[in-house]
């Protein structure tokens, strides 16, 4: 190091020091910083963030909030009893449909994803199959469930079938990806032991692999169900069934107090789902 030779040269120490950088050199670092900054500035310009637009937003938020409160759950408490009105009924049917979609999509999605997971695990299948598996996983992951849903609506029409299909399509991107990682970490010695008994590939998978990954499969299924519940509450916004459809039409009709009620119901469902899923996964492991 140059500083050392300086000091050895006669007790003279350098008077400058600059921090070493994680990038190849300072210019690369400068380049990365500048391009991040440039894109950021461009973004502000592109989106036309201006003070008056933000001011308009404050006014808009004020009006929206005042028309949202109090939330209208469709329940009235007059005369001591609770009477259920149209909105409450809409929320109930929407929620039920969302939950139904989430269950069906999880079961079908997992059934589809398990073989894909094997395909996407390097140590389970021949190379070409592995590549196909990885591509399926990547494509499934890259598309937001709503993008898939909007296409599914075009293909099979409005309603829960489209939403369910969309969630099924999105499942391998999560489920098969994580399960494949587990399959790749599997204990080889156990498999070799079974193979040495003369077992076929299917038998090895059945007796060697399945017992090792079953708890993980159950855990991931519960986790995926949690994710699907979230998706099922919003997927109706593009017409693919569930409470989201109700939410969207409430916005279209400017019934913002009803909208808020639906959003609160969705938040409650998501939170309960998260809690139940976390508890169940702890129990399984």
């Amino acid at each position: 190091m140059s500083h050392r030779s300086d000091s050895a040269g006669g007790g003279l120490y350098p008077e400058e020091w600059s921090r070493p950088t994680a990038f190849r050199n300072r210019w690369v670092r400068l380049g990365v910083y500048l391009s991040v900054l440039a894109f950021f500035v461009y973004s502000i310009w592109e989106i036309r963030v201006t003070p008056d637009r933000l001011l308009v937003g404050i006014e808009g938020a004020r009006t929206l909030l005042s028309s949202m409160f109090p939330p209208d759950f469709g329940l009235s408490f007059e005369g001591g009893g609770i009477s259920v009105e149209r909105n409450a009924e809409l929320i109930r049917t929407g929620v039920v449909e969302s939950l139904g979609m989430s269950v069906v999509a999880t079961v079908v999605g997992v059934l589809v994803s398990v073989p894909i997971a094997f395909m996407a695990a390097e140590n389970m299948v021949p190379r070409p199959v592995y590549y196909v598996g990885r591509v399926v996983v990547s494509v499934s992951r890259a598309f937001h469930v709503l993008v898939v849903a909007i296409i599914a609506v075009v293909a099979v029409g409005f309603g829960p079938l489209a939403g369910t299909l969309a969630m099924v399509f999105s499942t391998p991107g999560f489920f098969a990806k994580l399960l494949a990682e587990d399959l790749e970490d599997i204990d080889r010695t156990e498999l070799d032991a079974i193979r040495s008994t003369g077992a076929s590939r299917t038998q090895v998978i059945l007796y060697g692999v399945v017992p090792q990954v079953l708890p993980r499969v159950i855990g991931l299924t519960i986790y995926r169900w949690d994710i699907n519940i979230r998706a099922a509450t919003i997927i109706g916004i593009v017409g693919a069934g569930g409470i989201g459809s109700t939410l969207y039409s409430s916005f279209q009709r400017y019934e913002y107090d009803f909208s808020l009620a639906i959003v609160l119901v969705i938040v409650a469902i998501v939170m309960v789902g998260e809690g139940v899923s976390a508890y169940a996964r702890r129990r399984v492991q």
Binding site: R48, I234, I237, L247, I266, E274
Partner: peptide, 25 residues
Amino acid sequence: RSVNVIIWALVFVIVFGPGALAGAF
């Protein structure tokens, strides 16, 4: 975290009007 991005988008489109600003929010 519990409110999906598309719901936030519905809300901010009303607040700011349609466009990318609502999207960013």
